[in-house]
Nucleic acid binder design. Structure first.
Length: 840
RNA sequence: GCGGACGUGGCGGAAUGGUAGACGCUGGAGACUUAAAAUCUUCUGCCCCUCUGGGCGUGCGGGUUCAAGUCCCGCCGUCCGCACCA
């Protein structure tokens, strides 16, 4: 038996054993209580990165721990395999997106397997597989039939060079991120999912997700953006083009007497109608459209308007006319696309009114006495009491708003409504590498669903990426089909689905994988909801909101009996590394950097000095990545896993460091050496027994709370204690138990130790050790003794000492007497078994 | 602008209102060794002191309390999310 643990041999040996014995297959028919542990599945970009390693290690600890606790655990892995990088690779390297993707999957699967994750590989899936996306098409049609899918003209960011739609985040400074071409806004017919139908439900549901981070719930709440207010109509003094009203929305009906103007969005139908007869207005609208949407541009953009000839009548005073502007800061997508401006109490309206010399009236004040105070150089958006507002005067904001809503409803000119910031989900993408939308366009019948027996609609293989645009559009035959309804010549939809659709139900497919339908309801419900979902916080909004919506939509059409897919959510921090830059501004990879003799950093190749940059998320662009695979080669899977769990709390960033991975590798060897010192010793060591049971309890609590760094610290302490302890039966038992305790984190090491100790079976399928609660209590306690709240002494005393005895013991201390210096204590506070504080 | 989180040694970080700095890393000293690696022992918040010991200390300023890293008020700083959302 070697004196050193050899990961190169052990990792492979045990990975093979686990596979042979099918240890991690999840049995849907098992009588054991079930639990579902899931990490966000990876995009097969080429190789796994440290972020994956950290994410999957955390999930693996939970999965292995639950299995040992007696749960039937579902812990699957798959591939979020559609998406743009595959098409980019196709364009750059002349490979087929499918070949590129499948080859990446093969590489990354092997890499993941080297880390020894307790995954049920029999359930592996890839979203680019027709066996997956065919079922997705069926679900899409289910939603279509339920009226949750519709088609609408909508504005998109269009890259005229790549001839494709860009997501907002792919538009950088108004240009396409790949082509650099100035992005145009174009109107295209796109498919939408009615997520807004579920806005209230999705908001309400957040309340039940008590095992989600508050931060994520808050982000979703803000994203949904519910506002209560009044929607009402201004009558136009003179009707225009058959329209006699402008409808507006406000959250501050109480400020209605402070109105100075009405403003409509550039895309508002009335604005467009007027522009048809007014070139100047048409030019203004075009200018608004061209305006950038970046944060900086919005920050600095001036509030501009175009005064139309229209006027509206104030609903509460027929003699009061307000001018109508087309304004660049009014959004067509929110509310009604029109507002009334109250410059005194809204900053944007204030800026607008200042520019165009419109009246700025105070209609809210902190008290009625302040009614005549002028508005200064900024709007006052805060609540208060209504002033200068006729019958509202003196009413607090809330009551004044309610009063206006009541009158509007009674008078028939408006009603209390709720607005959401959330928009419907546009799912059309003009790309090849995605799930084909299963619709046929017929000139006679309109959009017609592809019949179920013709699913899946499979992507054609024979495509090329020599010219920009969507190859599906120019494929010679794929798009040419007969209308399923009338049989006449028709066109297949060539848009594909947003890849967020793929990831909105993969967790259901993992739970149940029949061939003839997306999932079996009963089997899926046996596993779902996911008990613990783990992934990056960058998915806090989109993926997690879409998946919640999709699940609720399936629930709505009675396909599944759960409303929320993820009971517990954990968002882990990033893996970071210092960055390095040469003096001429090139990013340098860590292995291109050397330490100079003076301790400074130099570029290895040139010997010249370099600049040490900030610690940032590992990224290719900053060249500060560490490839996990050579690290596994060098230190073994368990050291890498241990490092990922040590030191930093899992929700915070983890900085990669060479010395920490070495520390982790050292720990692996320490455990191995300790197991070597196990023998057939006699005698109890009650201190060891106590330490062991406290550790069992603490490690279990820490894993339950996803505080892996604390579990790790507990195990270090136990090892430290055992190293110093003399041989005893207690120590031997503790070593055996230690092996089980470290097994979720360092499973290969644990198996090797388990075997060495002659234990039957695999530690992976052993029971989690139980702790004896009576062993957690020591009969000796350390009592802190304070004088005036400052620690002056500590005493060892039997547990359960009464107050008087504790006080007496404390006062008997030399150190305390010296502190008191003859003074009589004025007061003594005793916390039994913990502390005595003497107030002198 | 709105919303949120965070701020503790040289570093990562521990601390149900009750002994601040567990555990790890780094560093120092020593043991073993011809030597190195590995391993082991030991020290490692700052300051004063020969020692016993003492003073200071959780971003800053106040407050509550017998007792505050923890609770409250006000600042400062860093990071994150959203953003012309009416």
């Amino acid at each position: 038996m070697s004196s050193r643990f050899d990961p190169a041999a052990a990792d492979q040996r045990w990975q093979q054993k686990w596979a042979e014995q099918n240890c991690f297959a999840a049995d849907s028919a098992s009588p054991k209580p079930k639990t579902y542990v899931l990490e966000m599945f990876p995009y097969p970009s080429g190789r796994i990165h440290m972020g994956h390693v950290r994410n999957y290690t955390m999930g693996d600890v939970i999965a292995r721990y639950r299995r040992m606790q007696g749960f039937e655990v579902l812990h699957p892995m798959g591939w979020d395999a559609f998406g743009m990088p595959a098409e980019n690779a196709a364009m750059e390297r002349k490979v087929h997106p499918g070949d590129w993707t499948w080859s990446n999957i093969a590489t990354m699967r092997d890499q993941l397997k080297r880390l020894g994750f307790a995954l049920d590989w029999s359930r592996e899936l890839a979203t680019c597989d027709p066996a997956y996306y065919g079922h997705e098409q069926a679900l899409f049609l289910d939603l279509f039939e339920a009226g949750l899918v519709y088609r609408k003209e909508s504005e998109v960011n269009w890259d005229p060079v790549d001839m494709t739609v860009l997501a907002n985040e792919q538009v950088i400074d108004g240009r396409g991120w790949r082509s650099g071409a100035v992005v145009e806004r174009r109107k295209l017919s796109q498919w939408f999912l009615k997520i807004t139908d579920f806005a209230e439900e999705l908001l309400d549901g957040l309340g039940s997700l008590d095992q989600w981070p508050d931060k994520v719930r808050l982000m979703q709440e803000n994203w949904i953006g519910k506002s209560r207010g009044l929607q009402f109509r201004f009558r136009l003094a003179e009707p225009v083009g058959g329209t006699s009203e402008i409808e507006v929305f406000t959250t501050r009906p109480d400020t209605i007497f402070g109105a100075s103007f009405v403003a409509i969005a550039a895309g508002h139908p009335i604005a467009e109608a007027l522009a048809a007869r007014n070139e100047e207005l048409a030019a203004f609208i075009a200018e608004c459209r061209a305006g950038g949407t970046s944060a900086a541009e919005i920050e600095t953009a001036e509030k501009k308007g175009f005064r139309t000839t229209l006027e509206v009548v104030h609903p509460l005073n027929p003699d009061w006319r307000l001018p109508v502007y087309v304004a660049n800061f009014v959004l067509m997508e929110y509310g009604t696309g029109a507002i009334f401006g109250v410059p005194g109490h809204d900053q944007r309206d204030f800026e607008f009114a200042t520019r165009y010399q419109l009246p700025i009236r105070r209609v809210v004040a902190s008290s009625e006495e302040k009614a005549s105070a002028a508005i200064g150089d900024a709007a006052e958006p805060m609540h208060g009491v209504a002033v200068n507002s006729s019958f509202l005067d003196g009413l607090p904001t809330e009551e004044a708003s309610a009063e206006i809503i009541r009158r509007a409803e009674a008078g028939g000119w408006g009603r209390g409504t709720t607005q959401y910031r959330l928009r419907d989900w546009g799912v059309s993408r003009q790309r090849y590498w995605g799930t084909p939308i299963p619709i046929v366009h017929c000139d006679g019948c309109g959009p017609v669903p592809v019949p179920r027996d013709q699913l899946p609609v499979v992507l054609p293989q024979d495509v090329n990426f020599d010219i920009p645009g969507n190859p599906l559009d120019r494929h010679p035959s794929w798009g040419k089909v007969e209308c399923p309804k009338c049989g006449s010549r028709a066109r297949r939809e060539t848009d594909t689905l947003d890849t967020f659709v793929d990831s909105s139900w993969y967790f259901i497919r993992f739970a149940s994988q029949p061939g003839d339908q997306p999932f079996d309801r009963a089997e899926a419900e046996a596993w779902l909801p996911v008990a613990q979902y783990i992934g990056g916080v960058e998915h806090a909004i989109l993926h997690l909101l879409y998946a919640r919506f999709w699940t609720r939509a399936l629930n709505h059409i009675r396909r599944i009996g759960i409303a929320e897919p993820f009971k517990g959510l954990f968002t882990q921090g990033m893996v970071t590394h210092e960055t390095y830059k040469s003096l001429d501004g090139r990013w340098l990879a860590p292995d291109e950097v050397d330490v100079a003799q003076g301790g400074g950093l130099i570029e290895a190749a040139t010997g010249s000095a370099i600049e040490r940059g900030r610690i940032e998320k590992m990224s290719k662009s900053k060249r500060n990545t560490i490839d996990p695979e050579p690290i596994i080669d060098r230190y073994g899977a368990d050291a890498v896993r241990w490092f990922m769990l040590s030191d930093s709390p899992p929700e915070r960033d983890l900085e990669w460091s060479e010395s920490s991975i070495e520390g982790a590798a050292r720990f692996v060897q320490r455990v191995w050496r300790m197991v070597g010192s196990h023998g057939a010793n006699q005698g109890d060591d009650v201190q060891i027994d106590r330490k062991l049971h406290r550790t069992i309890a603490a490690v279990g609590d820490a894993i339950d709370g996803l505080q892996f760094n604390k579990a790790v610290a507990q195990l270090y302490e136990l090892v430290g204690t055992l190293e110093k302890a003399p041989p005893s039966a207690s120590r031997d038992f503790a070593i055996l138990t230690l092996v089980r305790l470290v097994s979720p984190m360092a499973p290969h090491l644990a198996e090797e130790c388990w075997a060495k100790l002659g234990q039957p079976g695999l530690v992976a399928t052993a029971d989690w050790p139980a702790h004896d609660p009576s062993m957690l209590i020591d009969d000796q306690v350390t009592i802190a003794v304070q004088v005036n709240g400052k620690l002056r002494d500590t005493l060892t005393a039997p547990r359960g000492l009464d107050r008087a005895a504790a006080e007496a013991l404390a006062l008997a201390s030399d150190k305390i007497q010296r502190q008191l210096d003859g003074a009589a204590p004025r007061k003594v506070i005793v916390v039994p078994d913990r502390l005595v504080n003497i107030v002198a």
